[in-house]
């Protein structure tokens, strides 16, 4: 029978890579996930633990896909600890993808928000001039800098890191650098994924300058396909209408950058 995207497909973890002391990449073979569009995600079942939405990470091998997980609560720690030879279940791919423009592109990411942005980098044209900004709290939490440089090897590009404590790269908030850079350079498009307040500021700054900007949102997810309603933001369902939205659409949404819903569906402030 043909694969049902909404029923878990079981995959065996083949390789584990530690990116930082709290971030890990799990690699597995699959027919579908290696070829998803940039920004798409999967619902990942950790048998006996939970199921979480995860952006689909690139891998450097044919027929293999990956997830990059930061351990946080019980569910993500459960996934982080899945060892080589153990199983996970995947549903999807779900969600839309980034609208890929040509020319001077700016990507702004923080933490595991870099996952969909790295896949986006594999879709840029050789002539595109690409700037990647990576934000982190401190040096030990910086990852994927080398990978971004490797993917962009043949492009005019720069990868800049900003840490809040100044232990690596520039000191400050990544959005301070966004402000500076979009004033100096006329970008064709800005793409962002990471903490919502970082995305909010990035969208606002880009929008003020009239630059096309898209952000990939996170909300509480259960079904991943537009049934349960838990991922709603205003009238949009992040799993089905997004996760990627245009900046002007987001700025018209009173919840973006301000509120999110808890597991019980109660509105809470960021």
């Amino acid at each position: 029978m043909q694969r049902d995207p909404n029923y878990p497909t079981i995959c065996k973890i083949e390789k584990v890579i530690d990116e930082t002391p709290s971030v890990r990449t799990l690699i597995f073979s699959d027919d579908v996930l290696p070829n998803v569009l940039p920004g798409q995600f999967a619902m990942v079942w950790i048998p006996g633990v939970n199921e979480l939405p995860m952006s689909v990470m690139i891998s450097h091998e044919q027929g293999k896909a990956a997830f990059t997980i930061r351990k946080l609560g019980e569910a993500s720690t459960g996934l982080y600890n899945v060892a080589v030879g153990k199983y996970i279940g995947i549903r999807g791919p779900y969600g839309n993808s980034f609208d890929i423009k040509e020319g001077k592109l700016l990507l702004v990411g923080g933490g595991t928000g870099l996952v969909p942005l790295l896949r986006l980098l594999t879709f840029v044209k050789p002539s595109d001039d690409v700037t990647v900004l990576i934000g982190a709290k401190t040096k030990a939490e910086v990852f994927f800098e080398d990978m971004a440089n490797d993917i962009l090897e043949k492009n005019p590009h720069r990868v800049l890191v900003v840490t809040e404590d100044g232990s690596y790269g520039e000191k400050g908030l990544v959005t301070d650098l966004v402000e500076k850079i979009i004033t100096e350079t006329k970008f064709e498009a800005v793409y962002t994924c990471g903490p919502e307040l970082m995305m909010y500021k990035t969208v606002q700054l880009s929008h003020e300058k009239g630059i096309f900007v898209q952000a990939s949102l996170e909300r509480m997810m259960k079904c991943g396909i537009g049934i349960c309603g838990s991922c709603c933001i205003g009238e949009d369902l992040v799993c089905r209408d997004g996760t990627i939205f245009d900046g002007d659409h987001l700025l018209a949404n009173k919840e973006f950058g301000h509120t999110f819903r808890t597991k019980a569906g109660i509105l809470d402030k960021f």
């Binding site: 909404n6 259960k222 049934i227 569906g265």
Partner: peptide, 29 residues
């Protein structure tokens, strides 16, 4: 009172059609 509902997985499809769910009546109260 508000309810958080059950942990995921809470919804998936049945091969050949239909869905099985146990969301656990999560709701804000």
């Amino acid at each position: 009172e508000p309810w958080e509902g059950y942990a995921n997985p809470t919804i998936f499809s049945v091969k050949g059609g239909g869905w099985i769910n146990a969301v656990g009546l999560s709701n804000p109260g």
